[in-house]
Nucleic acid binder design. Structure first.
Length: 209
DNA sequence: AACCCTTGCAACCGCCATGAC
DNA sequence: GGTCATGGCGGTTGCAAGGGT
């Protein structure tokens, strides 16, 4: 007995959403909130799969979304985050307010990949292309393919994550972060990078969704 | 004008994680 | 502990728009 489908495919619309469908979805969520996605389509009078409704809401209809071009700062932040997190688009999106994982993923695949390649950087490894190719040949020869991605560490960011109960007291920690503006772990500049205080990004405070 | 190719992005698909029972 | 339903995520696809010939 296999898993039942998430929706009745025979009676669901597919493809681009119409204005009317958008309005129905928005109106329903305004009244009832983002409850159970599975039952939402029926309740909202939509002939759509629950997953489809969720995607449409999260990626396009949410009121807090920032539409429009990515800024230079956002570009650089995405590149740095990708260097550490890889294709963890949802984690990257969590650090870019108003941007969605789908949007960032598309932007990466269409713009940033090309941008990095034009700079001579391999978008997969964030190393210079020639070096990446040489290392890969070397690893293939040594039978070590697939190990470098997990062992290499981008020097720019500290993404050491931990899970803990919310603390009432300010957490004391060693200053092991790096400043986006000056690149120093001893940062004393007072810049504000994308709303990150003191220009310092410390992922130990990152909250998983 | 017509055709072809490329690009950008919205949407879908399949898998995995999690929670309820 | 096993099973199932559901939500969430990343990879991929499909299509419209734009540009080049």
């Amino acid at each position: 007995m296999g898993r039942s489908p998430c929706c009745e495919k025979a009676h669901t619309n597919k493809g681009a959403w119409t204005k009317e469908e958008d309005e129905r979805l928005i109106a329903h969520i305004k009244v009832h909130g983002e409850g159970c996605w599975r039952s939402l389509p029926k309740a909202a009078g939509l002939r759509r799969c629950g997953k489809s409704c969720r995607l449409r809401w999260i990626n396009y209809l949410r009121p807090d979304l920032k539409r429009g071009n990515f800024t230079q700062e956002e570009d650089e932040l995405i590149i740095k985050l990708h260097g550490h997190l890889g294709n963890k688009w949802s984690l990257i999106a969590a650090k870019l307010p108003g941007r969605t994982d789908n949007e960032i993923k598309n932007y990466w695949n269409t713009h940033i990949k090309r941008k990095l390649l034009s700079r001579g950087i391999d978008p997969a490894t964030h190393r210079p292309v020639m070096e990446s190719a040489e290392k890969k040949d070397e690893k293939v020869a040594n039978g070590e393919v697939g190990q470098e991605a997990s062992s290499w560490q981008c020097p720019d960011l500290n993404l050491e994550l931990c899970i803990s109960l919310p603390s009432q007291e300010p957490v004391k920690m060693e200053k092991t972060t790096l400043c986006f503006s000056c690149g120093s772990s001893e940062c004393k500049c007072d810049t504000n990078f994308l709303g990150l205080s003191s220009g310092v990004l410390d992922y130990r405070n990152a909250h998983m969704k």
